[in-house]
C-alpha cells in the first residue's frame, strides 16, 4: 500500500480555512456581546442562551439522524451559531418552552427543510425569531430592565425599549423633545444600558466583535457599512426635515437590533449575496426597510423583517449582478 501513489487533480495543497474555523470565529466574535448580556441581564441571559444553543444542536442532530440518515454534521458549528444568534434576539425573561419552539422553527423549518447547511434561503435564527414574535407577542415584547446580576429570570422587572417608547409617544401625539426625558442617553445606549433583546443592547460589544470578524477576514465591510450607512442617511434626512417628529440618526443606529443585525445577521454567508456590489444593494435595502418599518410600520422594530425581506432578493441578485470580469474589455495600460 505504501508504494501506491495518490493521484488527484490540482491544486495539491489547501489553505487553512475551514467551515469550522469560520464558525468558531463567529462564536468568538459573539462572545463580547454575550458577556455584556450577562452583565446586564444576569441569569436570564445564560438560561435563554444555553437553552437555545442546546435545543438547536439537538434538533439538528435528531433531524440528521432520523430523517436525512446521512453523516451527522453538527460539529460544523452552524447550529451553534444559529442557536447563539437566536438567543441574542430574545428578551432575557422569555420562558424556556418558547425558546425551544423557536429553535425548532429555526433548525427544522428554516434550515433542514431546505436541505441543511448552505441551502436555506432565509436566515434560520431570524425565521425562528419572527415566528416567535408573531406567535407569542406578549412574551416576546416584555423586556426586562437591565439590573445586572440582580435582574432575575422569571420575576424580572420589565419596561419598554427605547424604540417602543418613541413609537408609543409619537402615536400619542407627543413630540421627540418631550420624549427625550424617558429615553436613555446615547452614551448609556452605546454601552447597552437599556431594555432590549439580550444580545442587541451593547453596541460597544458588538463593535468589538465586528472588528474581530474584519481582522480575521470572516466578513467584508460591505454589508454592515451599507446597512448602518443607509439607516443613518435615511434617518438623517427625516430628522432634518422635522426633528420633532423623527428621531435622530444616532438614536436609530444605537437602538434596537441594527448593529446585531448589520454585523451578525445580515452577513450570514448562506443568505447574503456574494458580489460586493450586490452586498451594498442588499445592505441598503435592509437599512431603508428597517427605517420604513420603524417610522411608519406598526412594529417599533424592523431589522428582522428587513433582513428576511432582503434575503428573498439574494438569489435574484446572485443571478444578475456579476463581478466585472478580468479582460472584459481591452485595457491599454
Amino acid at each position: 500500500m505504501n508504494n501506491i501513489l495518490t493521484v488527484s487533480p490540482s491544486p495539491h495543497i489547501h489553505g487553512k480555512e475551514s467551515v469550522q474555523k469560520i464558525m468558531r470565529d463567529v462564536v468568538i466574535a459573539l462572545m463580547p456581546a454575550f458577556f455584556a448580556s450577562v452583565f446586564y441581564f444576569g441569569l436570564g441571559a445564560i438560561i435563554v442562551t444555553v437553552t437555545s444553543v442546546a435545543s438547536c444542536l439537538l434538533f439538528e442532530y435528531l433531524i440528521q439522524r432520523f430523517f436525512f440518515r446521512k453523516p451527522i454534521t453538527i460539529t460544523d458549528g452552524s447550529a451553534l451559531v444559529t442557536g447563539l444568534l437566536l438567543a441574542f434576539n430574545l428578551p432575557s425573561n422569555i420562558p424556556v418552552f418558547i425558546v425551544v419552539i423557536g429553535s425548532f422553527i429555526s433548525i427544522a423549518v428554516a434550515k433542514m427543510t431546505f436541505g441543511g447547511l448552505g441551502n436555506n434561503p432565509f436566515n434560520p435564527a431570524l425565521v425562528g425569531r419572527v415566528f416567535m414574535l408573531i406567535s407569542f407577542p406578549v412574551q416576546m415584547t416584555s423586556w426586562p430592565v437591565p439590573k445586572g446580576l440582580a435582574t432575575g429570570y422569571a420575576d424580572a422587572v420589565t419596561g419598554a425599549t427605547p424604540l417602543a417608547i418613541v413609537k408609543e409617544g409619537l402615536k400619542n401625539g407627543e413630540s421627540i423633545s418631550q420624549l427625550v426625558g424617558n429615553l436613555p442617553s446615547p452614551a448609556r445606549m452605546f454601552l447597552g444600558d437599556m431594555g432590549g433583546s439580550l444580545g442587541e443592547v451593547a453596541a460597544v460589544a458588538l463593535l468589538i466583535g465586528f472588528a474581530y470578524l474584519l481582522i480575521r477576514k470572516v466578513i467584508t465591510w460591505h454589508i454592515p457599512v451599507a446597512v448602518t450607512g443607509s439607516i443613518a442617511i435615511f434617518a438623517a434626512i427625516l430628522w432634518l426635515s422635522n426633528p420633532e417628529k423623527f428621531a435622530d440618526p444616532m438614536f436609530h443606529l444605537l437602538a434596537g437590533g441594527v448593529l446585531l443585525g448589520a454585523i451578525f445577521m445580515a452577513t450570514d454567508y448562506v443568505t447574503s449575496p456574494m458580489v460586493p456590489l450586490s452586498m451594498l444593494i442588499y445592505g441598503c435595502g435592509i437599512g431603508i426597510i428597517t427605517v420604513l418599518i420603524r417610522v411608519w410600520g406598526s412594529y417599533p422594530e424592523g431589522v428582522s423583517f428587513a433582513i428576511l425581506i432582503m434575503n428573498a432578493f439574494v438569489p435574484l441578485m446572485n443571478a444578475n449582478i456579476k463581478p466585472k470580469r478580468f479582460g472584459e474589455e481591452m485595457k491599454n495600460g
Partner: peptide, 29 residues
Amino acid sequence: LPENESLRNAAMPCIRCSKCISVCPMNLE
C-alpha cells in the same frame, strides 16, 4: 508530498462565503 498532505479533506456543502469569488484572479464565480 507526504502521506498526510496528500489526501483531500472531505467536502462540505457550499456555505456561499464568496471567498472563491474574491480570490479568483479572473473575477469569475
